[in-house]
């Protein structure tokens, strides 16, 4: 009930029926979660994985590469929480250490591909003569299916986490360049850029102050999706033997090693698969949430 003071005596106060339901202000942590449920869920799942990756040595793990052939392919139980693999290595420890590789590759590729793509996109959007050359080159790169491009690069280099990051970044950055160029081309036609040019602002300052902030929203969203897709690509590369070397446990590796026996010992493949799916889901949720939150049009249902 809303009480209105009409300004006369207290008897004249009328009880008006509520015109619209009371607004519940969504403030604080819970309000924030209610407003951005997918960002919250994504961050929550991702931070669990991050904690697992950072504190892997203190979370009940043993040496993930320790071989115990007597105790191979033990089912999940008290001694081996997730079971043991063909060489008797503890799958729980391997999966937890594998989180490090996956997150490292995902984040690094997102950063490297975004930075390279951002620079090329800015140049392409601003330098007319370079635009044609760069964009034809990007068209060519985007015509090569990303996984195959990464496979080809990995076939030419020695397997290492660094090389995996470079290979996947090369396969991903053209899409960022395309996106940034598109934003730059539309923003540079805006009146505020004309105004800045007319008032004698130098080009680098225009780029830094007027163009760059407008590319950040789409870029962050794109970087999140790249992170998710890079984690899947890393797992695929390791799974088919073109990724991280077998000495470093990664989810793709563990699944590749479990492949021969998966019909009888499905748990070897199962646990890394669950971890990979949850992590990628978390990053995708974060991306979807950010896209909705950063979209200036605010069309939540699109």
């Amino acid at each position: 009930m809303v009480r209105l003071d009409t300004g006369r005596d207290s008897a004249a106060r009328v009880d008006l029926p509520p015109v619209w339901p009371p607004i519940r202000l969504r403030t604080g942590v819970w309000g924030w979660i209610a407003r951005y449920p997918s960002i919250a869920l994504g961050c929550f799942l991702l931070s669990i994985m991050l904690v697992g990756a950072v504190f892997a040595p203190w979370l009940g793990t043993v040496d993930p590469t320790a071989i115990a052939t007597v105790k191979r392919t033990r089912p999940p139980g008290a001694e081996y929480w997730f079971g043991s693999d063909m060489l008797g290595r503890d799958i729980y420890s391997r999966v937890l250490y594998g989180t490090r590789v996956s997150l490292l590759v995902g984040f690094s590729v997102a950063v490297v591909a975004s930075v390279v793509g951002l620079l090329l996109g800015l140049v392409s959007g601003f330098v007319r003569w370079a635009d044609g050359v760069i964009m034809r080159f990007m068209d060519g790169m985007m015509s090569i299916p990303p996984i195959l491009l990464a496979v080809a690069l990995m076939a030419l280099t020695r397997g290492s986490v660094g090389n995996v990051i470079v290979a996947i970044s090369v396969a991903e950055f053209p899409r960022v360049a395309r996106l940034v160029r598109g934003v730059v081309l539309s923003v540079r036609e805006q009146p505020f850029v004309d105004a800045a040019i007319a008032s004698g602002t130098r080009t680098p300052v225009i780029i830094w102050r007027h163009i760059l902030p407008n590319t950040l929203g789409p870029l962050i969203v794109q970087a999140t999706y790249i992170c998710a897709s890079a984690m899947i690509t890393e797992a695929i590369l390791s799974f088919i033997g073109a990724g991280t070397p077998p000495t470093i446990p990664s989810w793709g590796n563990i699944m590749a090693e479990g492949r021969a026996l998966w019909q009888v010992k499905p748990f070897v493949v199962f646990f890394p698969a669950i971890f990979l799916s949850i992590t990628v889901l978390a990053v995708n949720l974060l991306g979807d949430g950010l896209r909705d939150a950063l979209d200036p049009r605010g069309q939540k249902d699109r």
């Binding site: 797992a235 695929i236 499905p266 698969a273 990979l276 799916s277 990628v280 889901l281 995708n284």
Partner: peptide, 22 residues
Amino acid sequence: AVVGFSVPVFVVGYVLAYLFAL
């Protein structure tokens, strides 16, 4: 659709093969 984006092809493959074939 979000789940479809997130679960990698080989994970779906193994789950399906395990359920419907084994």
